[in-house]
Design a protein around this nucleic acid. Structure first.
Length: 851
DNA sequence: ACCGCCGGGTGCC
DNA sequence: ACCGCCGGGTGCC
């Protein structure tokens, strides 16, 4: 119960309403939906009014009694204490105010009485409040039934809601009173919000989340299972546990969590919904082991061990008499497994296994459904899945009923509003698995899409998740927390690096040491740096005075990137295109500048999702966002740029994919090679390492891919054997690079030049035991993930990480900000206003250049 | 009786 | 709906 105790403590400390919560961070800030709500005045379309994003800051205004009428015309049934949903019907031929009432299944129960609907339609249409229904008791009559309506709204809208109701002669019953009555009936939680939403740091949230799993003793998750002979790699004990758990879950025919059989009917304990049809069992779950514990291997073992009908895939071995089939299980199952972004399949498999598998991505993917249906395993990517989703004609992926779908890096479907998530949710499969080391990133909201993917009734609909779990938990309700625990214990398996198996740590990793190596720029470098710094500081202080930092963001951004580049190497600096005279030219100049800066391979964050840029695009006003994020904004009417509030249009977006447009600075006019203080420091270390032990391998990491290109020159000159891995490389090229680096052959390269963000969680580079981080990142988590590529299962040496930081520079200030971000308590559930986020950014920029 | 009262027809939005 | 509401029939005690 430590989870909710801390929860209460945390809220006692934070106290004030979310709007006043101090925040200097756009790093661990709440996730995409909340941020969107702050940036965009109009909420996303949502049938139940009041966008989901605003829900976390909503409070219970009060309750109202009403009636549902017209029951005899509809089939939807409702039992005692059951939740119902309200749905506006503006096109109803009889009454444009019509509000329909549905049960959990989405079946219509009836309508709200006309006079009541006349008062409430306005509130719903203008998203003044969210109105939730609960039918308090079973009625014997076929015509009407009572309904308790609860009004939830942000505090700021309370007055507007109450006065509107007053105009229609309606008064809300105070929440405590109403809530008490319903609680006494042991109904769903309608408990009054006696607590403000709870504030926790993202780190606290994650650690509390992990505590949910610590108490698991009674759960049958410690049984181990031997994998099928087709699995070549030996499994560690915790991986055998994962295998056993996954097989049990796949073959499980128990009722899903929160359902029970009552007098021949199936009853949902959270919503009190009852149905005669048996709800589908959950044949799958979330494997949420920490990065590096071998989720991929466990899953491959699952596929081969629970291949068909609870039996493993046979292995054919050639003996003296000929081929011998070890097991007579059916070789061709009627259904197949779809793997999204799961790699390393081959390396864990016995070569004698007869498994038909195909890769389904790239322009020449085998679209023939007949061919696909002959495969045992189909491997695809999120990009392909998303591309094919929703295009006219049926995508072969969407057409197939899969035996099993596995989403690797499953947290990528965290945002329910992206096409990628919708594409993943639309897959039809009997067994569904989601692999992720970070099931929760920022808030509980992150979990909904993941749970929804498992097709767990009634959580496939957002409002039931919100009403029964997310909101109670965020209000500090103990019952809500128990529900969350119950659910997670049922559908997820999570072990951290600190977990124990059979009394021993799940993994014992070699030591990992981080050392900051401070670099002093040489006289010449310092002069250049200081000149640019002085110029930049005066420009930025002018913007500060004019309060126009955000409209000149591209400029500011370019200055900062330039300074960071100067810390690395003077030749890295992108040159500014010539200034134009008219506003239009100036705008074009800014866009070009942004494009050029991004093309250096710099790692910037998107102001909407607050994560690293994915598929970056530049707006007309020269701000950069993920394509998917800004496209969502553009779908709004009167869409405005979240950074500067200028108008944004889809047609004016400029593509800029860092990988593709990577430009080694001025290839044609490249000056003669000169080193830099940082490069010197790197080379000294590398040469010393080679002298001490030529077998030691190193990762050389930078965010600037152009810097990696520069580093190639001295590496070559000193006779180092190296390879390079960055985002612009094709899938097959990456695979070749990794296997050549990981290989223990004497010809194998000893250095890997690595772009900080390239590759996913699964990128394993355990051959290296030294890491040189050439430049600090905004996001310390990005650095950690990068270090984990070599400091993970399979690493045999102690790992030493060297982080180069130029003294008295923007880099040192970045480190300060990193520390501040780590320490800062930010509201995991708190909403932040546009102005707060902007202010935080401005403050950060001031810190960076000592203003 | 320009009322009251009765009892039948009727019924979401 | 074992209601409310409507509108027609009806009319001292």
């Amino acid at each position: 119960m430590a989870f909710w105790q801390n929860w209460y403590n945390a809220q006692g400390g934070a106290g004030a309403a979310s709007a006043h919560f101090p925040d200097g961070s756009f790093l661990f800030a709440p996730d995409q939906e909340e941020s969107l709500a702050q940036f965009i005045d109009s909420a996303l379309a949502d049938s139940s009014a009041l966008a989901e994003e605003a829900l976390d800051s909503a409070v219970l205004l009060g309750n109202l009694r009403g009636n549902v009428v017209g029951l005899r015309y509809y089939t939807g049934v409702v039992s005692k204490n059951e939740m119902v949903a309200l749905q506006r019907e503006p096109r109803n031929a009889h009454d444009s105010n019509a509000i329909r009432v549905n049960n959990i299944n989405g079946d219509q129960v009836g309508h709200l009485r006309r006079q009541l609907a006349a008062a409430l339609a306005f509130i719903l249409d203008n998203k003044l409040a969210r109105i939730e229904g609960l039918v308090p008791y079973k009625v014997n009559n076929k015509f009407t039934m009572p309904v308790q309506l609860s009004f939830w709204a942000p505090e700021a809208q309370r007055a507007a809601v109450l006065s509107h109701l007053q105009q229609h002669g309606l008064n809300l019953a105070p929440p405590t009173q109403g809530a008490g009555v319903w609680r006494a009936r042991a109904g769903p939680s309608y408990r009054a919000p006696s607590h403000q939403p709870v504030h926790m740091t993202a780190e606290q949230l994650k650690s509390e989340f992990d505590k949910i799993f610590e108490d698991i003793k009674e759960d049958n998750k410690t049984a181990e299972m031997e994998p099928a002979p087709a699995v070549r790699t030996a499994l560690l004990p915790h991986q055998k546990q994962a295998l056993a758990w996954m097989v049990t879950r796949e073959n499980n025919w128990e009722l899903p969590p929160f359902w029970e059989l009552r007098g021949g009917l199936y009853h949902n304990l959270l919503t009190n919904f009852t149905q005669s049809q048996r709800p589908d069992s959950v044949h799958g779950g979330i494997l949420a082991d920490d990065m590096g514990l071998g989720k991929t291997l466990s899953t491959i073992a699952l596929i081969l061990s629970n291949f068909h009908g609870g039996r493993p895939l046979p292995v054919e071995r050639s003996t003296e008499e000929g081929a011998e089939v070890v097991d007579k299980a059916p070789v061709s199952p009627p259904l197949h497994t779809l793997l999204v972004q799961l790699e390393q399949f081959e390396q864990h498999m016995d070569p004698g296994v007869q498994l038909r598998r195909c890769l389904y991505y790239g322009p020449n993917r085998p679209r023939d459904p007949d061919f696909l249906s002959q495969q045992h395993v189909v491997l695809t990517t999120y990009t392909t899945l998303t591309t094919e989703h929703g295009v006219k004609g049926v995508s072969p992926l969407q057409a197939v009923l899969w035996l099993r779908v596995v989403l690797d890096e499953g947290h990528t479907i965290r945002n329910p509003n992206t096409r990628q998530t919708r594409a993943a949710l639309a897959l039809k499969a009997q067994r569904r698995w989601l692999l992720t080391g970070t099931p929760i990133q920022n808030s509980l909201q992150d979990l909904w899409s993941l749970v929804s993917f498992l097709k767990l009734k009634p959580f496939t609909e957002r409002q039931w998740w919100h009403r029964t779990i997310q909101r109670p938990v965020s209000l500090g309700d103990e019952q809500g927390l128990r529900r969350l625990q119950g659910l997670l214990r049922n559908i997820t398996l999570r072990r951290t690096k600190n977990s124990q198996v059979r009394g021993r740590p799940v993994v014992t990793l070699p030591r990992r040491t981080l050392c900051l190596q401070h670099i002093s720029l040489c006289e010449e470098e310092r002069q250049i740096y200081q000149a640019i710094m002085d110029e930049g500081r005066s420009t930025i202080s002018r913007y500060l005075r004019e309060d126009s930092m955000m409209t000149h963001y591209a400029d500011v951004f370019a200055i900062l990137v330039r300074l960071r580049q100067l810390c690395c190497h003077p030749h890295l600096t992108a040159r500014t295109p010539p200034a134009g005279a008219t506003t239009e030219e100036l705008r074009a100049k800014l866009v070009r500048k942004m494009k050029m800066v991004l093309s250096c391979g710099v790692d910037e964050e998107c102001a909407i999702c607050l994560d690293s840029l994915r598929l970056p695009v530049i707006t007309h006003c020269a701000h950069v966002f993920c394509r998917l994020c800004i496209c969502q904004v553009i779908q709004q009417t009167n869409a405005r740029c979240p950074m500067c509030r200028a108008e944004v249009r889809a047609g004016q977006l400029v593509e800029c994919s860092p990988g593709e447009t990577d430009s080694t600075p001025a290839e044609s006019t490249r000056p003669a090679w000169v080193s830099s203080s940082k490069v010197d420091a790197l080379m000294l270390s590398l040469i010393e390492i080679r002298r001490q032990d030529p077998n030691i391998k190193s990762l050389v990491v930078s965010q600037f891919t152009a810097f990696l290109s520069l580093i190639e020159i001295p590496l070559r000159a000193e006779g180092f054997s190296f390879v390079r891995f960055d985002g612009s490389m094709s899938r097959s090229r990456r695979a070749k690079t990794v296997s050549s680096f990981q290989s223990c052959s004497p010809a194998s390269p000893t250095i890997l030049l690595l772009s900080l963000r390239a590759g996913g969680e699964g990128l394993t580079l355990t051959a290296a035991s030294r890491v040189f981080l050439m430049d600090p990142a905004w996001n310390p988590a990005a650095e950690d993930q990068c270090f984990d590529r070599c400091h993970r299962l399979g690493q045999t040496r102690d790992v030493i990480i060297t982080k180069f930081i130029v003294k008295d520079s923007v880099e040192e200030n970045m480190i300060k900000i990193q520390h501040r971000k780590r320490d800062l308590a930010i509201g995991a559930f708190a909403a932040k206003s546009h102005s707060e986020v902007t202010k935080a950014r401005v403050d950060e920029i001031r810190t960076l250049i000592d203003l």
